[in-house]
Design a protein around this nucleic acid. Sequence first.
DNA 1: CCATTAACGCGAG
DNA 2: CTCGCGTTAATGG
Length: 198
Amino acid sequence: MLIKEELLLAYGAEIDSFDPNDIIFNEADKPRYYYQIISGRIKLNHYNEAGKELILAILHKGLSVCELLLFIDKSYPVNAIVLEPSRVIKLPKKNFFQMMDENQEISRDVNKFLSERLYYKFIMLENNSSLNAEVRIKGVMDYHKSFYTDQSAFSFEIPLTRQQLASITGLRVETVIRTIKNLEKHNVVKIRNGKILY
DNA sequence: CCATTAACGCGAG
DNA sequence: CTCGCGTTAATGG
């Protein structure tokens, strides 16, 4: 967890509950709160000129949501859409900065978190720039598995649908299916009940 | 809604 | 020409 709930609450945070498809903020909205996920999952997405969805991130418990916007004077470049019933703790921007000023270690933790996310953005961009569909998909799978403790083969169930994998990689769902089948044939993944084990 | 398959088009190499 | 990906359509869960 990035920041302890008790500390956020002490600075005036509130807890909101959301249902699937709820929108926490929209593209072009002005950032006003620091958000941190208590439970559930949230995606950050953008629709391109052709109406095709690009998923920038799928965030889970303990992670903050687009906190980088609090540090710059810009509108959100993505929508935040709830995937599963979720609870989110939110702290007004002003309180967030007061908390950072009064707690050196929190300030450092947020820096570290931002750095990590930026680092993985580089990695993901490198993978996603590949012409090879396998490289793009494995990049996403490696990233999601990196949050998971058991690193042994086939121990991790990819928590994404084929369509979501396609929207993250910019590929078509049929290409994702073909590529995953091929990875299974080469013993890189297993498929059980449609779920991808990696 | 999600996963899969097949046929076909098309561009890159 | 071959290969891989996108497109379309159809099928089944």
